[in-house]
Design a protein around this nucleic acid. Sequence first.
DNA 1: CCTTTCGCATACCGTCAGTACGCGAAAGCT
DNA 2: AGCTTTCGCGTACTGACGGTATGCGAAAGG
Lengths: 192, 192
Amino acid sequence: MSRAEQREQTRRTLLRESRRLFTAKGYGAVGLSQIVNAAGVTKGALYHHFDGKAALFRAVLAQVQEEVGRRVAATADAEPDLWDQLVAGCHAFLTASADPDVQRIMLIDAPAVLGWNEWRALDEAASARHLSDALTHLIEAGVIARQPVAPLVRLLSGAMNEAALWLATSADPGDLADTKAALTRMLESLRG
Amino acid sequence: MSRAEQREQTRRTLLRESRRLFTAKGYGAVGLSQIVNAAGVTKGALYHHFDGKAALFRAVLAQVQEEVGRRVAATADAEPDLWDQLVAGCHAFLTASADPDVQRIMLIDAPAVLGWNEWRALDEAASARHLSDALTHLIEAGVIARQPVAPLVRLLSGAMNEAALWLATSADPGDLADTKAALTRMLESLRG
DNA sequence: CCTTTCGCATACCGTCAGTACGCGAAAGCT
DNA sequence: AGCTTTCGCGTACTGACGGTATGCGAAAGG
């Protein structure tokens, strides 16, 4: 195996195993020794690829955010109508957030580990950007009233994040439908 | 000084200093040695009063939540009309969340330190309960449509938490007014 | 075939949360 | 008052953690 291949494989294994452990136990409860044991390497390898525990977490977070962003964008783009794209994207975000990786890594640990400011910047670049773009286009198209977009994005993004976490612990499968209905009603209020 | 007085004073000093440090640096970046130094005691005293670092944080969080709950309830109760109570309470929550203690301790660190489940239970008992009660009363009174309350509470609670954090880093003072306006529009959609 | 590169292992360090135990002063008891 | 018990807290220690310095051995380059 060539050196480049070996390097890539080690890096991918570290990302995979750390993501698994972070998801299962949370950032604080996972030691570097557990990660390198699971990956079959040593701390030397880890520090050769990443600047430390937080940097490793950052790389894992980037993966998760990229996956969520792709899923949301794909679902939204399937709708021809601009308004339907917004609704479909929001529903897709709720669905994607059912993934335990998303919940623990992206919604719970990330703000505390990276600080809220950095988390917000990454969230903006990944998923919230789609929401921001959609709302801007809808305003340009005259579908919803002209108003500041930034506060709306934060309100809606926060609502969806929190609802997603709540749905994770919910026993009643009807809760997802109820939440989507309530969220849709909130969105509809923008069209009024 | 009597033993009871001494005990009480040590406990209060520990709570005060740890709250100050947690707010300034965040839970993870504060060591127990810093806390006991600031309080003028030793780790023996800390472990005599609390079961550990997480338990100390829990006690601090309870303080913060209680303060926020009181402020929100007081503002809401000043309104005679049931609907105005809801709006006033939500606005009061946004205002109260401008406090750095609330942001760092209650909104950022608490979910990661205690886990989201415990955080949610405490949040429910403290501040979200008021929101839940208000919505239930409004449904009983026929002011808003009959619908599941729990998803609404999570959506609105999450929206306000996130908006509060965003407002904290906002430079434009008009953002608060814009956010309150957007939030009010969301609430109005319930009356439709 | 010799040299350089570099991916990674080994061994170590400072700091942290948490624990075991002892002291000394206040509180109860006769 | 004196004697004992209680208990608030200090002291001294431990294991585990994140992080660093350094060395080795195989692949790449000439």
